[in-house]
Amino acid sequence: MSAVLDRPATETPGEDGFLARVTAWVLAVGGAVGLLAATTLTVEKINLLADPDYVPSCSINPVLSCGSVMNTAQAAAFGIPNPLLGIAGFAVVTTLGVLLLARVRLPGWTWLGLQAGATFGVVFVHWLIYQSLYVIGALCPYCMVVWVVTIAIFLYTTLHNLRRLRPSSRLAALASYHSFLLVTWYVVIALAILIRFWDYWSTLL
């Protein structure tokens, strides 16, 4: 009996099992970090509403500044402040991640739901990255934390679903390069930030 319970949820051993564990950790930790960032942003937003002269803790200098980012229309893209969406979404991701870490086998449709949420999240985040860099022209540190975790959550969820639903497809083979894909993705965005604010960074070096 106990032997059955102790058996990992994923049947396939080796790389697949490893990737499933990594995905569970990414969801649990990434979700928790995203939740923390979204909560902080919500609290800062409330402080800012209560006192228009309030300087948020993450307004460090003209480039790294959430005050100026939080006061834009883009910060409430769907009519409610973005961090509220984050609190709801990341709470779900964290819960699913923790369940996976506890080796609970999630129903297939949960993974599809997570895929839908993560896809929405990653598209939204890239729109926000574009707005932040090229329209607003400032970076908000807590928002960047959200960018980082959302990309990781999307990538690992997608790779997991590809392996699950189309195990022999070419795309699923990409799963073997999971961390390389993630780092490359981050590097592209870091480069965009570096180039966009080069005037500023070069004064720091």
């Binding site: 073997s176 390069y177 780092v183 490359t184 590097v187 870091a190 070096l205």
Partner: peptide, 30 residues
Amino acid sequence: MTKNLRLTLAMVLVVILAMIGLITINRNRA
């Protein structure tokens, strides 16, 4: 070491070297 790990580490290494290079060039110019 898996191929994924090698590629990842290589990418991280390239970024670190590029950063060092940029900082050095900037210092010299300054």
